[in-house]
């Protein structure tokens, strides 16, 4: 009797191990801006490649053999399955190692993890995406999910600010959205040293001057460096957004991704399982969250 239980559990280490990374191949490395590449990956195991899905806003744990593991948010939409796109800035040990990789090299992935955006909450409403800098990485997944499921959402608005046109991530893709009639895409740069930017120049919050928002029918998703939160959150509150209609994606140190290792703990929540998407209400109620 006991022997049987033990065997089952032993098997769980091998077969149902939440820490088990699966090998994935780098199918494309795209240099978007300096120290910010877009990596396209596909699981080696066709079964996994074919069935893997996620919610916009979720992340994966990326392993580089011998180097270690790090959380990376998923930039591709689940509406475009088969591959995963990761927009990665070169900041640490794992991302540095990833930058040494070439097409066809192997890495390993487990996940997806985290709550992701509450899609059932967003459907049927206006969706406002506000991103600064690298903050576009998790929001791009939501953006393309909304575009690919256009009928399920009301107005879709994207506001994205980068420091200069050369720092703008997904620039060609976002610029191509500017002319579309089924969504509003507003882009800005803080400054334009090269002088070739044809769009708006100025800080991200200025983009609010260009549109009328009906907060009662809108959910806002915000992601960016601390300065973005400081100004955008105030702006949204001034416009009349309630705190649970403002969603934000947060970053913390993570070692497990599954609510065990303790590093991403904020107050009484774990960023990895209760987040990384939190409402502004969560954020102000959890000490030291923002």
């Amino acid at each position: 009797m006991h022997q049987q239980t033990e065997t089952t559990l032993h098997r769980s280490v091998v077969r149902e191990n939440p820490y088990q990374p699966h090998m994935a191949r780098i199918v494309r490395v795209y240099n978007m801006v300096a120290d910010n590449y877009l990596f396209t990956l596909r699981f080696v195991d066709e079964q996994i490649a074919g069935t893997f899905t996620h919610r916009p806003g979720q992340f994966i744990m990326l392993s580089l053999p011998g180097t270690g593991e790090a959380p990376i948010s998923i930039s591709s939409s689940p509406s475009r399955p088969g591959v995963l796109e990761l927009c990665v800035r070169r900041v640490g040990r794992v991302t540095n190692a990833l930058y040494r990789c070439r097409t066809n090299d192997l890495v390993a992935i487990r996940g997806p993890y985290g709550n992701g955006f509450p899609m059932e909450e967003l459907m049927g409403k206006n969706v406002l995406l506000v991103a600064g800098g690298l903050g576009i990485a998790p929001l791009r997944s939501l953006l393309w999910y909304a575009i690919d499921n256009r009928g399920r959402f009301e107005n879709i608005t994207v506001m994205y600010g980068a420091r200069t046109p050369q720092d703008m991530l997904f620039r060609d893709e976002l610029v191509s959205l500017v002319g579309r009639t089924d969504l509003t895409c507003l882009l800005t740069v803080d400054e334009d040293p090269g002088g070739d930017w044809k769009g708006h120049i100025g800080l991200l919050p200025q983009l609010f001057d260009y549109l009328a928002i009906r907060p009662e029918r809108t959910c806002a998703a915000v992601c960016g460096p601390p300065v973005v939160y400081r100004f955008i959150l105030k702006r949204l509150l001034d416009l009349g957004f309630t705190k649970d209609r403002i969603l934000m994606s947060l970053e913390r140190r993570m070692r497990c991704g599954v609510g065990k290792c303790g590093h991403c703990s904020v107050g009484y929540k774990y960023t990895c399982i209760h987040g990384p998407i939190f409402t502004y209400w969560d954020a102000i109620n959890l000490p030291e969250m923002i």
Binding site: G66, T67, R255
Partner: peptide, 30 residues
């Protein structure tokens, strides 16, 4: 709380992934 690290063998990519006790009091925890 635990930390996770990859320990690589000399001259290869082979290695072990280990977990080690950690503490929220250490300066690098967050």
């Amino acid at each position: 709380c635990y930390d996770v690290a990859d320990e690589v063998k000399l001259g290869s990519h082979d290695g072990d992934r280990v977990r080690l006790w950690d503490s929220c009091l250490f300066a690098t925890h967050a």
